[in-house]
Nucleic acid binder design. Sequence first.
DNA 1: TTATTAATGATAGTATTACTATCATTAATA
DNA 2: TATTAATGATAGTAATACTATCATTAATAA
Lengths: 225, 225
Amino acid sequence: MELQLQIKMNEALFLRNPEQTELGKKILMHSIQLIYKNGFETFTFKKLAKDIGTTEAGIYRYFENKHRLLLYLVAWYWSWLEYQISFHTNNINDPLIRLKMVIKLLATTVKDDEKTSYVNESLLHQIVISEGSKAYLTKHVSEDNRHHFFKPYKDLCAVIGDLISECNPKYKYPKSLASTIIEMAHFQNFFMNNLPSLTDFGINKDEAKIISFLDDLVFSSINKI
Amino acid sequence: MELQLQIKMNEALFLRNPEQTELGKKILMHSIQLIYKNGFETFTFKKLAKDIGTTEAGIYRYFENKHRLLLYLVAWYWSWLEYQISFHTNNINDPLIRLKMVIKLLATTVKDDEKTSYVNESLLHQIVISEGSKAYLTKHVSEDNRHHFFKPYKDLCAVIGDLISECNPKYKYPKSLASTIIEMAHFQNFFMNNLPSLTDFGINKDEAKIISFLDDLVFSSINKI
DNA sequence: TTATTAATGATAGTATTACTATCATTAATA
DNA sequence: TATTAATGATAGTAATACTATCATTAATAA
């Protein structure tokens, strides 16, 4: 069985749909590799063009600028993750077990998904950890929000928030707890690998411990009477 | 009584000590204003120089580049906050009350501190909320860490972690919980003001609710048996 | 008092970044 | 066969991120 997964992206994110052409797919594939390797700050369209074997102008036909490309990649990731969550929590009735699964999916290193040929989810996951917050930590966050560029992130947060409310309808901060889980799944990973003294996982760098921490955090909060 | 507060900064952060000259103090004062106003991305030494009435080269004599200046400002902020914490928790014996005070100090909008003439803590607090993570979310985080540029942040985290352990010696994740509190005090504030659907405080934008959320999160976690 | 040093000002220059514009070529479709 | 869509090739511009040089001024030491 060979499946192909296509994620419907907000069309305002790009000038030309990168998923519909060979060059577009190359832009996605190589930008993920380059940003993963050298970070978003030093990433330029010129370097990307050289890497692909096209010209700078060629890239600009797809994305207005590198920030839009980052928004695209990050939005793609959150959409993909929401799909993963709905896939893996399907048929599980107990919301507590579903929530546990969500935490696991958020905090576990991702393997490359064969269903998406031009996106390496494993690298993209690392990019979202290191660069994801830069998507919204800008002066134009409200404008970008008006364009619905953060919809996949907000949708995911809403899904998790609803799940938390399902576990405990009386819990007062489901959305904030949801965004806390999402952010901390990534920040604790980044800290563990780069500033380990900010975590309790520095010695063996075991992501299972991040999951335990988040489980403890979440279920302590919502299991109270 | 007129006091002057001087924070001892890591000398590797600057080329020439900005606190020791008039121009240096202007650089700190005006960079805070400019970054607050336009964000770190569009902030340049050229604009800063023009704002101050000096030349670009003049700024470069103090800071190697704008990222070092950001590191300086953020490090300054965390040092200042640790001082605030030690000041406000002095004479409080109960670690639970001390921890509550810490959360309050982390999550409360800061007023300008008269004791530091050339740093507007209120604006700096907003900068740390919006730009603080960019200090370490880089490819050179390990190198910067080797230079001890994050020491004030790590020190603060250690102080809070120790306080958590004092509240409950059996709690397994004091450092991770500490970094979670610090980050979330800021992220929930940013979300509340810019992407309110990611929080439960969107309607009235009341930072007291952020404090309640963090209190609930922390004390649920550590008060278990 | 003069000599020396430290800090600043003024100016110039370079490589890179972040784009925009134009025109020719090729491939796909009508 | 004509038309359109996508790409390639090239050029150019303003801004960014620096580095270098030399003159001037202010503070301090001999």
